[in-house]
Design a protein around this nucleic acid. Structure first.
Lengths: 119, 119
DNA sequence: TCTTATGCATAAGATTTTTAGGTATGCGGC
DNA sequence: GCCGCATACCTAAAAATCTTATGCATAAGA
């Protein structure tokens, strides 16, 4: 298990979690594993970030949770998107794409600014 | 001047500033204007974020600064990338691209996880 | 003269993340 | 039987970085 190559960008965790849960109900640990695996170990969610985030999203009404047993018979807390959460996810997805596009313009496409008095 | 459509993602400001200054020396206000214009008003750097960021980057040795007059005869503080800053920018640029790619995998390409006991 | 744009700066508050701990159980290997 | 590891949850302190609000000052233009 290789170390994650970078820290999380603030603000992207909610999007990752919501998108992961859009496939169906999962418990927290499975959410973390899914993000790590589907990003090919590039993104590793720290537990100290994950669990508070899940509670935050539930408090906002974007998730619902309940305790249940996993396939292996262990107790775990499952989370599922609410309708509100699903709508919120779509907005956040669109916003992420706009953000990436805006960054791309500035980073790779912008015309150099006029030189201003640089000696 | 339209309102910015979204808040800055934490951690991307340094990259935007360094990239902007990679075109040549500019003063802070011009950096802000360049980012806003080249992102087509999508990204608006708040002054309360910009000026501390410039000082932070200078303290880290990524920028150098000096006071000079602008074309219009006003005093302004100009910033320029150091060699260290330029090297740092390249690393951050590469990291941003890896991050976007990792996000893309999770958001748009991932296979749905196995359902785990969702009733 | 009044408003807008230019130009810098700091402080308080909010939010989110990292770091660093704690608890407990199931399973495989030895 | 026991050890180590993966599984599964949680919290608190600290760090980082942003928004919001405020202050100062000058140039240009209506």
């Amino acid at each position: 298990m290789s170390a994650p190559s970078m820290n999380l960008l603030r603000g992207t965790l909610d999007l990752l979690v919501l998108r992961t849960l859009s496939h169906g109900a999962l418990h927290g640990y499975a959410v973390s594993r899914f993000i790590r695996e589907s990003s090919r170990d590039a993104l590793q969610i720290e537990e100290g970030a994950l669990y508070p985030a899940l509670r935050r999203l539930e408090k906002k009404g974007l998730l619902e949770s309940w305790w249940d047993a996993t396939d292996t018979g262990r107790d775990a807390k499952f989370y599922e998107l609410t309708d509100t959460g699903r709508a919120h996810l779509e907005r956040e997805l669109a916003q992420w794409e706009r953000y990436v596009e805006a960054m791309r313009r500035v980073l790779f496409e912008a015309e150099p600014p006029l030189a201003l008095g640089a000696p």
